[in-house]
Amino acid sequence: MSTTGGRRPGGEHEVRGLVFRDDGEAETEPEPEPRPPSPARAGRRISRQKLTLLPALLIAVLLATWLWFRQAELDPVSENALSDGRVSKALWQHVELTVISTFFVLIIAIPLGVLLTRAAFRKATPVAMALANTGQATPAIGLLALLVIWLGIGRRAALIGIIVYAVLPVLSNTIAGLKANDPTLLEAARGIGMSPLGVLTRVELPLAVPLILAGVRTALVLNVGTATLATFGGGGGLGVLITTGITNQRMPVLVLGSILTVALALLVDWLASLAELLLRPRGLEVGT
């Protein structure tokens, strides 16, 4: 609006848009507007490649395994271990264990993380983190044994073991994500009249989503792994195949259990990365 208000590119006759919009931008952006979304799109394209590669690989591996088992001559012990839909039952149990445990991990760790970053409870953060660390530092199998002694054999003990084991990554990432938020931004949020709950749900959590999701992804993969131990507590899952394979020294059974576990872990990781991509708030993309 001042002296430079009417300045325009030399010789140019018609200036695009309204003049009173031009000033201010005229100096800050002498060149035509860069198209902002393009770098983001490029970033997406790269991850899209990554996203299609993995499922293709998984399908190939699973197909190869299936073809091999179709032509393989299995002895009665192996036959017995793999027949009557035992494989699909084990797989299904495993998925259930993973999903249920992850669900509980989320509803425990995220609210806890939120609570521990509130001013009133900040002092409790070291204690809670120490506890969560102990949970993860304890060997999973030992933890499971203790839980079985305490709760008896069954799925409940197995689930609790898995949950205790996976709380830490989600909790620490939630806390890290919430703490990483710029305090001046949060002050601005309060300054324009957001209630504490509003600041949390509209600003803090959305901005922490990328880190929280990274923690959830770690927890998911971790859970697929620890769920193989559920069999020792009578919780079923793909661990059944693996232990049967080992105790009866039947390689095919062991290999199938392992391949399915690895494939499931990779699939879950892939799904989680998909979720990360879709749930990350727009506007936060790097390179935008």
């Binding site: 001046t184 931004l185 002050e187 601005a188 949020a189 309060r190 300054g191 324009i192 009249g193 957001m194 209630s195 509209r202 600003v203 959305p206 901005l207 708030p281 727009r282 506007g283 936060l284």
Partner: peptide
């Protein structure tokens, strides 16, 4: 204080805009 702040505009250095909201959402939030 929440009610008070909704009746008092507040603008700070480096704008304090919410990066995950569009310009329209930022302006329309109050």
């Amino acid at each position: 204080p929440v009610g008070l702040r909704r009746k008092v505009g507040y603008a700070i250095q480096s704008s304090g805009l919410f990066p995950h909201m569009t310009v329209a959402q930022n302006i329309g939030i109050v």
